[in-house]
Simulated scan of single mutants.
Amino acid sequence: MGEGNFNWSNEVLTRLISQAGLIALKLVLIIVLFFIIRALGKKLIGSAFEKYQKKNTVNAGRIRTLEKLSINVFSYALIFFTVVTALSNLGVSVTSIIAGAGVVGLAIGFGAQGLVSDVVTGFFVLLEKQIDVDDYVTVGGLDGVVEEVGLRTTQIRGFDGTLHFIPNREITTVSNHSRGNMRAMVDIGISYDDDIDRALSVIQEVCDKVSAEDSSFKDGPNVIGVQSLGASEIVLRVIGKTENGMQWAGERTLRKRLKEALDVNGIEIPYPHQVYMEKKADI
Score class of each variant (00 low, 15 high):
residue 179 R to M: 13
residue 194 D to P: 12
residue 12 V to H: 09
residue 268 E to G: 03
residue 63 I to S: 02
residue 55 K to L: 04
residue 195 D to Q: 01
residue 14 T to M: 15
residue 86 A to E: 00
residue 221 P to N: 01
residue 25 L to C: 02
residue 68 K to C: 00
residue 7 N to C: 11
residue 61 G to W: 07
residue 4 G to D: 12
residue 183 R to N: 15
residue 219 D to V: 02
residue 96 S to C: 04
residue 105 G to D: 07
residue 154 T to W: 09
residue 45 I to L: 07
residue 253 T to W: 10
residue 261 A to P: 04
residue 70 S to H: 02
residue 87 L to A: 08
residue 218 K to E: 06
residue 235 V to T: 12
residue 189 G to I: 11
residue 277 M to V: 07
residue 274 Q to C: 08
residue 99 A to N: 10
residue 139 V to E: 03
residue 189 G to D: 07
residue 159 F to M: 15
residue 185 M to K: 13
residue 100 G to N: 14
residue 26 K to L: 09
residue 6 F to C: 14
residue 55 K to Y: 11
residue 255 R to V: 03
residue 129 K to V: 08
residue 57 T to S: 12
residue 276 Y to F: 12
residue 227 Q to I: 08
residue 25 L to G: 07
residue 218 K to F: 08
residue 135 D to T: 01
residue 270 P to D: 01
residue 118 D to G: 06
residue 96 S to N: 15
residue 220 G to Y: 08
residue 205 E to Q: 14
residue 209 K to F: 01
residue 23 I to W: 00
residue 48 A to R: 06
residue 218 K to R: 10
residue 238 V to F: 13
residue 250 G to L: 02
residue 220 G to Q: 14
residue 194 D to A: 09
residue 279 K to V: 04
residue 243 E to D: 13
residue 249 A to H: 11
residue 135 D to A: 05
residue 230 G to R: 10
residue 154 T to S: 04
residue 221 P to R: 00
residue 110 F to K: 04
residue 264 V to L: 03
residue 251 E to I: 00
residue 205 E to G: 06
residue 246 M to Y: 14
residue 152 R to F: 08
residue 260 E to V: 09
residue 16 L to G: 03
residue 60 A to G: 04
residue 137 V to N: 05
residue 234 I to N: 10
residue 17 I to W: 13
residue 31 I to R: 11
residue 254 L to C: 04
residue 21 G to K: 09
residue 12 V to T: 15
residue 186 V to F: 09
residue 130 Q to P: 10
residue 19 Q to I: 13
residue 120 V to D: 01
residue 267 I to G: 05
residue 165 F to T: 07
residue 89 N to H: 12
residue 100 G to M: 11
residue 190 I to Q: 05
residue 1 M to A: 03
residue 189 G to K: 03
residue 187 D to K: 11
residue 243 E to F: 10
residue 52 Y to N: 01
residue 199 A to Y: 06
residue 21 G to N: 12
residue 170 E to N: 14
residue 249 A to Y: 13
residue 155 Q to K: 13
residue 5 N to T: 13
residue 54 K to G: 00
residue 182 M to E: 14
residue 11 E to V: 10
residue 212 A to E: 12
residue 175 S to G: 08
residue 15 R to S: 13
residue 200 L to T: 01
residue 253 T to R: 14
residue 37 I to M: 05
residue 135 D to V: 02
residue 178 S to I: 02
residue 71 I to C: 04
residue 215 S to R: 15
residue 126 L to K: 08
residue 135 D to R: 00
residue 252 R to F: 15
residue 151 L to W: 04
residue 216 S to D: 14
residue 15 R to K: 15
residue 261 A to N: 02
residue 52 Y to E: 12
residue 63 I to M: 01
residue 59 N to H: 00
residue 23 I to N: 02
residue 46 G to S: 07
residue 18 S to K: 14
residue 143 D to N: 09
residue 153 T to K: 03
residue 55 K to A: 06
residue 111 G to A: 08
residue 182 M to V: 11
residue 205 E to D: 09
residue 5 N to C: 15
residue 247 Q to P: 04
residue 14 T to P: 11
residue 215 S to Y: 15
residue 276 Y to N: 12
residue 46 G to T: 05
residue 130 Q to T: 11
residue 166 I to Q: 06
residue 180 G to R: 03
residue 12 V to Q: 15
residue 100 G to L: 13
residue 225 G to E: 05
residue 40 L to P: 08
residue 72 N to C: 02
residue 20 A to L: 15
